[in-house]
Design a protein around this nucleic acid. Structure first.
Lengths: 150, 150
DNA sequence: AGAATCCCGACTGTCATGGTCAGAATTATA
DNA sequence: TATAATTCTGACCATGACAGTCGGGATTCT
């Protein structure tokens, strides 16, 4: 029951893109610098995010990535889903599940539980948008300016 | 964001123990038979459950395992925690987290999110007890008796 | 004594994670 | 027009978790 650091990295990258939204594309070299993440790895994640339709890319010298839509219209769930695939505690509650695949389906008592769990997770993740993460971030920054020079 | 089938197996086994509660120990050979799970694997899981204090074991001929306390006092969270370790989307919100381990702690905007997520998951898993799973099970069984002969 | 059981440690194959690397394609700019 | 900055792609790799298997030991009932 954990979020991969892959998804976590992706979210951090998306937060950077959100901060830069409207000011032209942001390169992953820049993201790697400010977030201290391995550049070559971010490249892969950025590709996934693009294929998932969350960001647009611009190649060439002043290229980079920018959010495909405003930050308040991209939820954490969107990001996690693109990178990790659908959030689903067990296969039988995932979207593409084909009825009958699990032989125990009829007599399974815990499916209801897993469905509640999935809904609960989805709710939390879809309620938080990148925009909120960014404003939380600036709140933190403004409250502890002495720490930022480290 | 998924529950390992290891934990899922463990839960199924615990449900069997719950059904047999009060009627002497239940052997894992029996569990393996009715749940169609590999016996040798269940042995490992049963050991973990015992070490985690969720079941008591009896060796010898009519031995087996029985719940360490009534089924309504064991939650799904208890089971998952013993088998998978603490449920925690990211390290920095887990119980044993040492403040300062994550260098980004000060400026991390998503920690609040992960804490909400953990709480939400914990809530769902701790609200459901083995007793409820068992009664759900019997409800299902009584409603579709024709299917049980397959 | 022997069968049924739990107990334990070692082993194994497969897969996801968390990367790295080399090089090709594209584009701005000196 | 060359070159530097970028994205894009596919291949590669090391590590550890997961999902098991196996062999044998310890215990207890009959």
């Amino acid at each position: 029951m954990r979020v991969s650091s892959k998804a976590h990295y992706g979210l951090r990258m998306m937060t950077e893109f959100a901060k830069a939204y409207g000011a032209g594309p942001l390169s992953i070299a820049e993201v790697a610098r400010v977030e201290h993440l391995p550049l070559a790895y971010l490249e892969q994640l950025a590709s996934q995010l693009r294929r998932g339709g969350l960001v647009d890319s611009t190649r060439g010298v002043h290229g980079g990535y920018s959010l495909a839509r405003p930050a308040d219209q991209i939820s954490v769930l969107d990001v996690v889903t693109v990178i990790e695939g659908e959030v689903s505690p067990v296969e039988c509650v995932s979207h593409g599940y084909v009825t009958g695949t699990c032989q125990r389906e009829g007599e399974c008592a815990s499916r209801g539980l897993w469905m509640r769990l999935k809904q609960s997770i989805d709710a939390v993740l879809s309620q938080t948008t990148l925009a909120e993460l960014v404003t939380d971030q600036s709140l933190i920054d403004s409250m502890a300016p002495a720490e930022t020079t480290r």
